[in-house]
Design a protein around this nucleic acid. Structure first.
Lengths: 392, 392
DNA sequence: TCAGTTTGTCTAGTCGATAAACAAAGTTGA
DNA sequence: TCAACTTTGTTTATCGACTAGACAAACTGA
């Protein structure tokens, strides 16, 4: 059955609109909301009163008069509930407790050396428990838990494959729901990163945003026409396995000449080893480059060039407004970006190049975490506003 | 000002829903519409009556009873208006007159040998005039004119660049509107092709469809989450200029190793010339291949392999449900497809490969035309249903 | 001090959807 | 054949969300 429209839908949509307006324009008066949204003053008043009854917003004193009665300013009641958001990396679990505005209230990090599913999920739950304990008491408590995963996640939240963790077809969502009984969200880390930068980071005014998560491999989060694009089953954004050298080196994915064979952290470290720098970490290499070591600088330059080739492709494919580079490789942004920009400048078609901005993730290592938090918050607001049935 | 919701919007949306239900399920009764949409019987009745008053639908006698009163069946009144849709090729102008269901009532083709804008637009208007004369009298007459263009079209309908026509920054839309005073739509031919296959062709049940328009160059139309994706300014889908050979041959676009340097009709004919087949056309090559000529067969096979590389990339990027190959190269589909499928089969990641179907455009040379018609029809219905202001 | 302005609430009215009653037109089975 | 049941489509009363406009409260500025 298709979506039909009636007065209840109208109310729900308008209430959501009022809430979003308060979030994005806070502090704001009832009168200003009416002006911004186009809704009638009376409508706004009644919707605002409902939102206050539900403790989602608060009045915060009066604002300055503009020649008449002073307005009563409204604010999101940001501590009415909290989210727990986790970034599941290959070497660590990073978790935060955020309020409904995405402010971080607590943080936990656990280094991991064993990626077995049972071990990790135990550590994950320890991490969640510790964050939960730190949550202040609030009207809604923990409104949801979300996890960003470096792997293939279906649209319904199953993890099909996380190659760098060695996971195949695991159902983390069910496990967490059974234990915590709150909404659980599992999302690919690049998708979450894209959304994080859109909601809280550098992409807030952008509706066409490509987020390049460059780490051990390359994943891409696509924000198209303001919405996350996931593809038929959630497998989109595998741009790491886009061929940029036909019949190039074989990738373990089965394809040849994949972008991430040339432009990822893994590729960088392998090249470093071949260049007789031995077994080094990314942090080591950044340090060497900082000390002016030529080989390290050259390696970053080559990496930037290869990154630029793929980014040029994404610009031709998506005509985005913004390309955001995120995840671990941004540590070396100073050494990577010049070569990357040079390649893009030289190779991108003029029309597509003119409007696009290339940026480094503003939220740094928190892009994914805050994207996860944004998903959870949005879901909470949407069900919260929606919880009135026609029979009430 | 953002979209607000009120009873008028509700009515408009529901009326649109009823109309779409009639179009897609015709012939259908009022009672069935209520069941399919979830709307109340009375609501459906009143909306249907309005649509009949507006001559958009008709009753078409009674259907068979299922144990009670016989239903009155409803149909789209498909000849209440007509569209004129043009496919502007490099060698020809192909135009059709369609009714509101996309049935072709008349067709005109003009061969062209001069691509100067003034000359072409004159020919175009001749073509439109001839089609207009053939339109039967109808309630709404010509509801719109659309043109599919092989080039870069902005979201607001300006043609920025049509390299194979030698056009730069021309305003066809204004010119046609000034002359005909009906809604004019200018769209990239690949976008239109994708939409044509979605609405009338092989992609009718598909919401994630990639349409590869393979002709002199390669353009791609992207139907993502059921909607055409155009990018920030309308420049998306330039997958013809996706690098598949880093530092490969220089393309006139400024990039290197572009897909269309290897997998387009132009590339094919150049290779044929190098292979001492002389100056041949695509049709010549197909004939040679049909006659079993080895060189022609080999050239098509190589082309298919290169097409497969790019298609593999699109599958990794978009996780589509369907990839549709369209435009002139489908003449040679029998010779191209096996190598293309082989490459895709070998190189695509399992998850992404499992669900995707590879098809040839069902509408053949009419994909673009019918996509243009679909845009025009949709626009007409949407304004037609919408034309009641709150003050009425 | 008073006219004018701005904010926010309240009331009456409009309009579209819904549920339920109803009329019309069929089928089915004894 | 005919009564009971079904299905279709219309009509009517009611509900509820938004709107316009009146109104009160609160403030500015001359």
């Amino acid at each position: 059955m298709s979506q039909t429209w009636n007065q209840y839908v109208v109310k729900k949509e308008n209430k959501q609109l009022v809430l979003e307006t308060i979030i994005h324009h806070a502090p704001i008066s009832r009168a200003s909301i009416a002006k911004v949204t186009g809704l009638n003053k009376g409508t706004v008043s009644s919707l605002v009163n409902e939102l206050m009854d539900e403790h989602l917003i608060n009045e915060s004193g009066t604002g300055v008069s503009s020649g008449g009665r002073r307005p009563v300013m409204l604010l999101l009641h940001e501590t009415a509930g909290f989210t727990i958001s986790i970034d599941l990396g290959v070497k660590h679990i990073l978790g935060v407790l955020t309020d409904l505005r995405g402010n971080i209230h607590a943080e936990e990090i656990i280094a991991i050396d064993n990626t077995a599913f049972d071990f990790i999920s135990q550590q994950l739950m320890n991490c969640i428990d510790r964050l939960k304990q730190q949550a202040p008491t609030s009207e809604y408590g923990i409104v949801g838990i979300g996890v960003g995963v470096p792997g293939v996640v279906t649209t319904d939240g199953h993890i099909l494959l996380a190659p760098n963790l060695g996971w195949k077809r695991v159902s983390l969502q069910q496990k967490l729901y059974d234990h915590y009984q709150v909404p659980i969200l599992i999302e690919n880390e690049a998708n979450a990163g894209a959304y994080g930068e859109k909601v809280f980071g550098i992409g807030q005014a952008t509706n066409q945003l490509v987020y390049i998560s460059a780490s051990i491999g390359i994943g891409v989060g696509l924000l198209l026409d303001g919405q996350l694009y996931k593809g038929l089953r959630g497998f989109s954004g595998e741009l790491g396995h886009m061929t940029i050298e036909k019949d190039g080196a074989a990738c373990r994915c089965g394809n040849n000449g994949c972008w991430e064979l040339y432009a990822s952290e893994k590729a960088l470290l392998e090249k470093a080893e071949q260049a007789s720098l031995g077994t080094v970490t990314l942090t080591d290499l950044v340090e060497k480059a900082n000390q002016g070591e030529d080989i390290a600088i050259r390696l970053f330059k080559e990496l930037g060039d290869y990154l630029g080739v793929g980014v040029t492709n994404t610009i031709h494919i998506f005509n985005p407004e913004q390309v955001v580079l995120g995840n671990s490789l941004i540590q070396a942004a100073d050494f990577i970006l010049p070569a990357m920009k040079k390649r893009i400048e030289k190779n991108t078609i003029g029309f597509n190049k003119n409007d696009v901005k290339l940026n480094v993730a503003q939220l740094g290592q928190y892009s994914t975490l805050l994207g996860i938090a944004a998903f959870t918050i949005e879901k909470f607001f949407s069900t919260s506003v929606n919880n009135m049935s026609p029979t009430e």
